[in-house]
């Protein structure tokens, strides 16, 4: 793992207001290539809003986002952000339910393929070869999760178990060819053995050359995979550091448990 001096993702003074509500206030975050960064914080602390602004779903009210060689992606619509190399999953799964498992991953590949209407309608060799390659790559991405998804390639996404739907969301995000993967509560609803499996999956995906930022409430997972942890509260960055540093930071304990608990600690 090499860490270049320049961060892959550089967020400066990022703010998002909804009317009078300050959902994000002056967030500064650097993420270096190859890191697995965990974002923690109580519900409503702005974690998912941060992902939504990063991925272009909500336009930022202020601040800048620099990503890799792209100087400023703050104003880009979601599909352009994805084409720059940022992919994400959703906290409340948003799979393409009536499409098959394989088609879900293929849908992630649309922006990485080129064939136009006429070559497709005429079934020209170029379009056919591109489609075959896309399907082969999709199979390979299903294979990231061992035998969890591969045997179910032709089932509809809606028929999958909860954990498999989470895995499919990750495979679909990987299909867009990202350098940065944002995972929004990937372990939510998973049992302990599934969470353990997910942790090794996340590390394996990082080892494929990706950088990962994840939001998670499961502290066991955060402790296990994250090289660095950032704590959010009330739309602000409270602190960052190793899991141990952040876990014992008085402001973090106060945010989770209240003022008196923080004093007692």
């Amino acid at each position: 793992m090499t860490m270049s001096d320049r961060p892959l993702l550089e967020v400066r003074g990022l703010s998002k207001d909804f009317g009078g509500l300050h959902a994000l206030q002056g967030i500064d975050i650097d993420v270096h290539a190859g890191e697995i960064v965990g974002i923690i914080g109580p519900n409503g602390s702005g974690k998912t809003t941060f992902f939504n602004v990063l991925s272009g779903i909500f336009p930022a009210s202020a601040g800048t986002i620099r990503f890799a060689e792209h100087q400023n992606i703050t104003r880009l619509p979601p599909h352009r952000v994805t084409r720059c190399g940022i992919a994400r999953t959703f906290q409340n799964q948003r799979l393409f339910n009536q499409m098959t498992v394989l088609e879900n991953v293929c849908a992630g590949m649309v922006s990485r393929t080129r064939a136009g209407l006429l070559p497709i309608m005429l079934a020209l060799p170029g379009a056919r070869a591109e489609k075959a390659a896309a399907e082969q790559r999709a199979m390979e991405l299903l294979g990231v999760f061992g035998t969890r998804l591969v045997p179910r390639r032709d089932r509809r996404a809606a028929s999958l178990s909860y954990a498999n739907r989470r895995r499919l969301e990750i495979a679909r995000a990987l299909a867009t060819g990202p350098r940065l993967l944002l995972l929004d509560e990937p372990a939510a609803g998973m049992n302990p053995s599934e969470t353990r499996e997910l942790m090794s999956d996340i590390v394996r995906i990082r080892d494929r050359g990706l950088t990962i930022v994840l939001i998670e409430h499961d502290m066991h997972l955060v402790k296990g995979v994250c090289s660095r942890v950032i704590a959010f509260d009330h739309g602000e960055k409270l602190t960052e550091g190793t899991f141990g540093e952040v876990r014992n930071h008085p402001a973090v304990i106060e945010a989770y448990l209240g003022h008196r608990a923080a004093v007692a600690a």
């Binding site: 991925s55 272009g56 779903i57 619509p77 979601p78 599909h79 994805t82 084409r83 992919a87 994400r88 959703f90 948003r94 799979l95 393409f96 339910n97 009536q98 499409m99 088609e103 849908a107 992630g108 649309v110 922006s111 990485r112 679909r172 995000a173 299909a175 867009t176």
Partner: peptide
């Protein structure tokens, strides 16, 4: 089909 199923997710998938 992705747009039919979930337009926002389709956008986010590029």
């Amino acid at each position: 089909q992705a747009i039919r199923e979930d337009e926002l997710a389709a956008q986010v998938m590029g």
